[in-house]
Design a binder for these strands. Structure first.
Lengths: 241, 241
DNA sequence: ACCTGAACACCGTTCAAGT
DNA sequence: ACCTGAACACCGTTCAAGT
C-alpha cells in the first residue's frame, strides 16, 4: 500500500531502496523532533529502555541519522534533561518569602512529576548546558534577595532548598532510597520483631514509616526550611547559622 | 609457575583446559569477593564502566560464574549500594539534637564521599534489601524522639533531613544539576551580560555561584533545618509547620 | 547537508555441558 | 554445587557510500 510497491519515476531502477535523503525534500529530522520523541519513549520504556536504535525506529529512520542532530547518546540525554528544566513554569512573585518559595518549589516539583521516568535524568546528571537552569535560579535568588538575604546567604539558601527538592523529587519518582512505600509496608506488622532486634524507635515509628504522602512530606520539609530562613532573617543574621 | 604447568593426576589427558571447578578445591568465588571487587572496579571505571564481563575478567573467572553469586547485574548493583549503607559508622548519641543530627549526617556524608563513584548507586536506586538502612533510620529516629518529637513528626523530620542529604551528596559527587563549579566558573566574568539578559539577581550572586565549598553548604543547610526543628520543638509544635 | 548500511567492539543473559 | 563456553539478542558508534 505504500510507495515501495508503486514504481516511482525517480528510483525506477530495480527494487533498490534509495539510500540518501529524498532529494529536494525537507529534512526528515530535526533536533526538536528527535527530543520530542525521545522524551515520549523514555516515559514509555524508562531511561534504561531508551536506545538510539529504538528511537530511530520510532522516528522511521536509520539509527545513524540521529547523529546529525545530537552528538551522541549522552548529548541526547542532556537534551532531554534540558527540556525538563525549560518546562518549569515559573510563577509570579508576590513578595512573601513563604508564598513565593513554596510556589516556585511546587512549580519545580510539578514539572518533574509530569515526566516521572525522565526526571532522573534531570536530577542525576550534570547539566552541561546550564542555560535552562538560569531562569529558575534567577527566580529563586530574587525571592531570597527580596526577603532580605545578602547575595552570599541567598546562594547558600538556594542551594539548600534545591538539594532538598532534588532529594524529595527523587524519592517521589521512587528512584532513590525510599525509607517508604512497599519495602516498609510490612514494617507495621513487625513491631515486636523490630523491638527485639534492638530497633525500638523504628518499631515505634513503623506505622508512620509504612505510609507516605509525597505532598505532605514536601510541605513539611519546605516549611521547616522556610521557618529556619524566617528565623534567620528576623534575627538579623545573628543566629548561629 | 602455577598448577596449570605441572601435569596433575586428575586432568592428565591432553592440554585441554579443565572446564568445571577444580574438584575438591574451595570455591573460587563468593558473594563477598564479587562485591569487593565490584566496588573497587566501580571506583576505577565509574558505574557505566562496570560490566559483568570486566568484573569476571578482574576476578579471573568466566563471566557466567558471577551468576552463581548474584542473580543478575541489577542485584549486583543493589549489593554495592547495600555495602555503602552498611559502611556508615553510626556515632554515639550525646542527647543534644544539633550535635547528634550533625554527627549522624556527617557520618552518612563521609561514607558516601569515601566512594564517590559508587555513591550514585546508593542515592539513586531503590534499596530492595532494606535491612542495611534500618540501623541508620533507628539512629536518626532516636535522636529526633529524644528531642521531643512524636513518632509521626520524627518521621517527617527524618525524611526531610534525608532528602536534603541525598541532594547535597549528589551535588558533591557531582552528578546532579550543580548550580556550581565549572559550568558557573565563567559566570563571574559575565555580570554585564547577565544584567542585560534580565538576570540581575543571578548577576549579583555570580561571584558566590561561581564557587562552592561542599562542607560549608552542608553545614549551612543542616543548620537551617535544625533551626527550624528547634523552633518547632520549643514552640511545642504550635508553629505552622 | 543529510540519510543509509555494513561493520566493529562491545553488552547481559540463557542454556547445555562439563567436573 | 559451581564453573565454563558458545550462542542469542541486543547495544553505541565509526566509516564509507550514497543523493
Amino acid at each position: 500500500m505504500n510507495s515501495r510497491h508503486m514504481p516511482s519515476r525517480k528510483s525506477a531502477a530495480a527494487g533498490a531502496r534509495s539510500r540518501g535523503r529524498p532529494p529536494g525534500s525537507d529534512p526528515v529530522l530535526s533536533r526538536d523532533r528527535v527530543l520530542d520523541v525521545a522524551v515520549r519513549l523514555v516515559e514509555k520504556l524508562g531511561v534504561d529502555g531508551l536506545s538510539m536504535r529504538k528511537l530511530a525506529a520510532e522516528l522511521g529512520v536509520d539509527s545513524m541519522s540521529l547523529y546529525n542532530h545530537v552528538a551522541n547518546k549522552d548529548a541526547l540525554l542532556d537534551g532531554i534533561a534540558e527540556r525538563l528544566v525549560l518546562s518549569i513554569e515559573i510563577p509570579e512573585r508576590t513578595g512573601d518569602l513563604r508564598n513565593d518559595l513554596m510556589a516556585l518549589a511546587n512549580a519545580f516539583r510539578a514539572a518533574a512529576v509530569r515526566r516521572p521516568q525522565a526526571v532522573s535524568l534531570l536530577l542525576t546528571r550534570e547539566l552541561r548546558s546550564f542555560a535552562g537552569g538560569l531562569a529558575s535560579a534567577e527566580a529563586a535568588l530574587a525571592i531570597l534577595a527580596e526577603a532580605g538575604l545578602d547575595p552570599d546567604k541567598a546562594v547558600h539558601a538556594f542551594r539548600t532548598a534545591f538539594a532538598f527538592l532534588v532529594g524529595t523529587v527523587l524519592r517521589e519518582v521512587s528512584v532513590g532510597p525510599t525509607f517508604s512505600g512497599q519495602n516498609l509496608g510490612d514494617l507495621a506488622h513487625r513491631r515486636a520483631e523490630l523491638e527485639s532486634a534492638g530497633m525500638p524507635f523504628v518499631a515505634a515509628a513503623s506505622p508512620h514509616l509504612a505510609v507516605i504522602d509525597h505532598m505532605v512530606e514536601f510541605d513539611f520539609g519546605l516549611s521547616l526550611l522556610i521557618a529556619g530562613l524566617e528565623n534567620y532573617v528576623s534575627g538579623g543574621g545573628s543566629r548561629r547559622i
